[in-house]
Write a protein that binds this DNA or RNA. Structure first.
Length: 773
DNA sequence: AGGCCGACTTAGAATTGGTAAG
DNA sequence: CTTACCAATTCTAAGTCGGCCT
């Protein structure tokens, strides 16, 4: 690789020839390894996985009524199409347009509020004049199943795409009511102190001060960058009105009075009666109502984040240079609305105008604005359960499944290219290895005004250590400044390559100096249409999960055990590693419970030896420390409660509790200390009189389950930092794997997905139990 | 050909709300 | 009945990546 051409940095070199394309799909993969790189138990479990029959996963039958309808175009869509809206692309750069011809759309929006659905629309329309009747039918139905909102079952339609050939057009008609602005600021008048003296602020300045005050007890408020940025922007606001006092030093500011006020407010809110709470909730719902749904081609869809983000202090993660910067209030003048030509344009708040009203049919956003801190765009999109999101979600997984056909070849390719003499190619191959095996992100370059985090392509010298003969030790901050720390054994050639690259670039520089995410993705795209680095994460997560699930599930197990297998499969998606701390605490609890049983019924000692078994994790030394900790925490708790009470008394104008009272209360902690010590010595643990053996056993079972769960989570988090359990479920693991598993083994889907996930993954729910990723 | 912009997915933190424990 | 805990949900920051512009 010391080819002279080879040593020039990327930007100085002439374009190399295009990489060898891999276009031929490989048959079906049986023994591909996926990312839990641990010499994945070579267990040949290919048999089950092997025969993937795809292509025909279209739903068999469905909904006779709909079929009778001849085509599946919902009525509303037909209506629109017939009234002249053409499908041709709208000029891309959005330009201002006046709203003409809103009448029909307005009417349709109103109408559709009461009912819109491909199937029901027919009947509903007829009942137009008899609204109450419609409502009645709905209500009676509601009795059975909580207002089962009719959903557009796009995944059951035959030829959705291709319909008009242009898939960059996302909609024909689009109706919605815009966005909800946060309420105006209401000054509270609480005076904070400067240099020990109460000061009066204009509402504007008070608002910003309050943003900070609210965070007083969080880490943000202690972060110097946060303080600095906040203070700078606050001073700017202060200066705008001469009535504000001069505030020169952050350290002389005392925000506590405002913080206390907020605490009190919270308290009051909690104390509110049920009726009051109910009323507040109803009010909230009422203001939200208009924004909850949009109509896309006449179909009702839930809107996601229709609220304009309220002003606040920017909470950047990690070491973000701009953290604490004032995020300004967004005015309607900054907000662009995207909506159908003929739809009624939502009214901006009185006295205001929208920045722009766009009709961009290639976009799925309903509204957008530019945020002042980083200059990035914010969008209002439909909710995760919508057709738009669902379709792209499914496409994502289909893309990952497609990768199955290519992955073998791709792996062969990059393995060969690890030795390529062109270092650009070699770097690419090495990076591919890391992305494939360890699920690293692509790693775009970042600017100085962002937190310094990296991904594969942007890894620098100090992020990877070489431990001969072939171990790489990663230690870097990834997305969200989450630390990725992992030591892995790699192919000897990968080890050598990293060593060479590091040597070439030196400390402080990017290891892959001739590789960019763009270059990498271009290459991947030449291997398979639509392939990019992130697909590997999806592919590996889903693939591994499917494999593990097949391997671990015992068909004859009861549901609870199957759930265990399911969760374990989720865990196996990551690698085993040290994950002590939390688990020890649980084991300790478990041990205590067992001893309670034995104390209660010493006869069991012989019958159930497992009850007296010692856990090697629970050393004397550890327990002493742990118990000391427990006692300390208890003391803290007592003190805090005491202080809180006093604060309240003070606020109510009463006199505080005496110190002696606190002393008295702290005795409880001392007793606890003595008790724990005795228990440790004697091994006898008394329990509450209400306890019995059965209850204790149940409790043990519970902690057992918890321990297992913790192992699952810890492994996932610690080891594979990048993929936390819920996240992988939500974003990386093809939901159809779970659905098929549930069907096959008769496990209710609710055991596996929360309500929102069930909604989000509705598209994945009508596959049959033999479906494989 | 590279940099920036825009739109969209992925992600952890913060908040809410339901429920078990006290 | 509170309270404390945890799972679910909401919020918005932080990525990815393609396309457009220069």
């Amino acid at each position: 690789m010391s080819d002279s051409e080879d040593d020039k940095p990327l930007y100085k070199r002439v374009a190399p020839k295009a990489p060898t394309p891999i276009q031929t799909p490989v048959k079906i993969e049986t023994h591909d390894q996926a990312f839990p790189q641990k010499p994945t138990n070579s267990s040949a479990d290919g048999s089950k996985v092997a025969n993937v029959k795809r292509s025909n996963d279209r739903p068999v039958k469905r909904n006779v009524k709909q079929e009778a309808d001849q085509d599946n175009t919902p009525l509303a869509k037909k209506r629109k199409q017939s009234n002249g809206t053409t499908v041709k692309k709208e000029s891309k750069p959005v330009k201002k347009e006046t709203l003409a011809d809103t009448t029909s759309a307005a009417a349709s929006l109103k109408r559709s509020v009461s009912s819109t659905t491909s199937q029901k629309a027919t009947t509903a329309k007829k009942a137009k004049t008899a609204e109450p009747a419609v409502k009645e039918t709905k209500k009676s139905k509601k009795a059975k199943e909580e207002e089962e909102e009719e959903v557009y079952r796009w995944w059951e339609e035959d030829s959705q795409k291709a319909e008009d050939g242009d898939d960059s057009i996302k909609w024909t008609t689009l109706e919605h009511n815009g966005v909800l602005f946060p309420p105006e600021y209401v000054p509270h008048g609480v005076k904070m102190k400067y240099d020990g003296k109460p000061i009066t602020l204009t509402p504007e300045a008070e608002e910003v001060a309050s943003f900070f005050a609210a965070l007083l007890e969080t880490d943000h408020a202690k972060n110097p960058t946060f303080q600095k940025n906040f203070f700078r922007d606050w001073q700017e606001v202060l200066k705008q009105d001469p009535r504000n006092p001069e505030i020169k030093e952050f350290d002389k500011c005392d925000f506590r009075p405002i913080w206390e006020k907020f605490e009190l407010d919270k308290e009051k809110k909690k104390q509110a009666t049920k009726e009051e709470k109910q009323k507040a909730k109803e009010e909230r719902m009422k203001t939200e109502e208009p924004f909850l749904y949009a109509y896309v081609d006449g179909r009702k869809e839930k809107v996601g984040n229709f609220r304009i983000e309220p002003p606040s202090l920017f909470r950047g993660r990690g070491d973000h240079p701009k953290t604490g910067t004032l995020k300004k209030r967004v005015t309607p003048e900054q907000v662009t609305i995207n909506i159908g030509h003929t739809a009624k344009v939502p009214e901006p708040p009185a006295g205001h105008k929208w920045a722009l009203v766009a009709h961009d049919q290639t976009a799925t956003w309903l509204a957008t604005w530019k945020e002042n801190v980083n200059g990035s765009f914010k969008y209002v999109f439909l909710a995760a359960s919508s057709a738009w999101k669902g379709q792209s979600d499914m496409q994502k997984f289909e893309k990952a499944r497609e990768l199955k056909k290519y992955v073998k070849k791709i792996r062969e390719n990059y393995t060969a290219e690890l030795r390529d003499k062109l270092s650009e190619t070699r770097q690419r191959a090495t990076a591919m290895y890391l992305i494939d095996r360890f699920a690293l992100r692509a790693g775009n370059e970042k600017g100085d005004d962002e937190a310094d985090t990296v991904g594969c392509c942007s890894l620098r010298y100090e992020h990877v250590d070489l431990i001969p003969p072939n171990t790489l030790k990663f230690d870097f901050l990834g997305k969200d400044s989450i630390r990725y720390e992992n030591s892995v054994d790699v192919d000897i050639q990968v080890f050598k390559n990293i060593k060479i690259f590091k040597k070439q670039v030196g400390p402080g520089h990017m290891i892959f100096d001739r590789l960019t995410t763009v270059g990498l993705n271009k290459y991947l795209n030449s291997c398979m249409k639509g392939l990019s680095a992130k697909v590997f994460r999806t592919y590996n997560a889903s693939h591994t999960f499917q494999q593990q699930l097949d391997k671990l599930t015992v068909p004859t197990d009861p549901i609870s055990d199957k759930m265990l297998s399911y969760n374990r499969a989720n865990r196996e998606v990551a690698v085993l590693c040290n994950h002590q701390r939390t688990i020890r605490a649980l084991k300790y609890q478990n041990m205590k419970l067992k001893r309670q049983i034995l104390t209660l019924e010493p006869a069991l000692k012989k019958k159930k030896p497992e009850l007296s078994a010692e856990d090697p994790d629970l050393t004397e030394e550890w327990m002493i420390e742990y118990e000391a900790n427990l006692v300390e925490k208890e003391r803290e708790k007592i003190k805090q409660k005491f202080e809180k009470q006093n604060e309240k008394l003070k606020a109510d104008g009463e006199k505080p509790l005496p110190e002696s009272e606190l002393k008295e209360r702290l005795k409880a902690a001392n007793e606890m200390e003595a008790r724990l010590k005795k228990e440790r010595k004697t091994g006898k643990v008394a329990c509450k009189p209400t306890m019995n053996v059965e209850k204790l056993k149940a409790a043990i079972e519970k902690t057992d389950a918890k321990i297992k769960m913790t192992i699952v989570q810890e492994t996932d988090k610690e080891e594979n930092k990048e993929i936390a359990l819920s996240t992988s479920k939500m974003n990386y693991i093809d939901p159809r794997i779970s659905v098929a598993w549930c069907k096959k083994y008769n496990v209710p889907l609710e055991k596996v997905f929360s309500k929102t996930l069930i909604e989000k993954f509705r598209w994945a729910q009508n596959i049959d139990d033999s479906w494989k990723f």
